[in-house]
């Protein structure tokens, strides 16, 4: 069972789920936040000490007036690592969380043991259209996010209690705060990605219509030595839609680069 607790990071209360044993692995969630029943995270916890915070403004974490964008978030997470007394960690970042990991890594990858990018936001590949999670209807959103029929179950779990419904709305507002414009990217980030000097593995759901797989190839081209795998029957949320494959990919990669 995950241990759920809050830490105070310079006056901002951050909610954290921590489970499993092994080397510390920081999971940075994406626009959809964390609901708590993600099987991919449970699978990772059989091999790692998985630390999954809600970003400021998401989930049960406070929002912070001093964290306005993903650049702020990257510095905030250095404070969070200090608060948790974690020196070096494996980092897995999905969507906005991947973008956040990249913003941290281009500054310095000193705190990284390894990096996994999962359908990551952060860059803009011109002429490759993305889906807009904000303008579409709920039904359309589920089609952007899921390849298979897990969508209904996922949405249902957000509807389970009024508190979860509130968090769902809160997550959407926080995702807008961090990624509205420029949508899901920092247009300057690509010019600094040569600075990512940590072993990097890129995992991508093939059916992702929010950030299509062309982005995986673009990231591979920008991050020296990185590897890519694309997953079938999987869209934006591999840790939910293909939990075991996702967890295996992460642990095999870490086994390979940081045994």
């Amino acid at each position: 069972m995950a241990q759920i607790f809050a830490v105070d990071v310079r006056g901002c209360k951050i909610n954290i789920r921590r489970s499993g044993q092994g080397e510390p692995l920081l999971f940075l969630h994406g626009a959809q936040g964390i609901i708590g029943n993600e099987r991919g995270l449970a699978a990772l916890a059989t091999r790692f000490d998985v630390i999954a915070p809600d970003h400021p403004g998401f989930g049960l974490s406070d929002s912070s007036d001093s964290v306005d964008d993903v650049g702020d978030l990257a510095l905030f997470y250095l404070d969070l690592l200090d608060t948790l007394k974690l020196d070096r960690v494996h980092v897995v970042g999905q969507c906005i969380g991947g973008w956040l990991a990249l913003e941290m890594a281009v500054t310095s990858s000193a705190r990284f043991k390894s990096l996994v990018l999962l359908n990551s936001a952060g860059i803009r590949v011109k002429s490759v259209p993305r889906g807009d999670m904000f303008i579409c209807s709920e039904a359309e959103l589920l089609k952007l996010l899921f390849a298979g029929d897990g969508a209904a179950e996922w949405l249902q779990s957000w509807r389970a209690t009024p508190d979860l419904e509130d968090i769902y709305d809160r997550n959407r507002a926080a995702a807008a705060k961090y990624s509205w414009s420029p949508r899901l990217c920092n247009p300057k980030l690509d010019r600094w990605l040569h600075r990512v000097d940590v072993a990097t593995h890129i995992i991508w759901g093939k059916e992702d219509r929010v950030i299509p797989p062309a982005y995986a190839d673009a990231l591979k081209g920008l991050i020296a030595g990185s590897t890519v795998v694309t997953l079938s029957d999987c869209a934006h949320l591999a840790h939910i839609e293909q939990p075991q494959v996702f967890a295996d990919q992460v642990s095999q990669f870490i086994q390979r680069v940081a045994p």
Binding site: I135, C136, D169, R170, A173
Partner: peptide, 13 residues
Amino acid sequence: PFEMLFPPGYLSS
């Protein structure tokens, strides 16, 4: 549609 009229964050919760 609702999503266009009230984008996330536009209204307080």
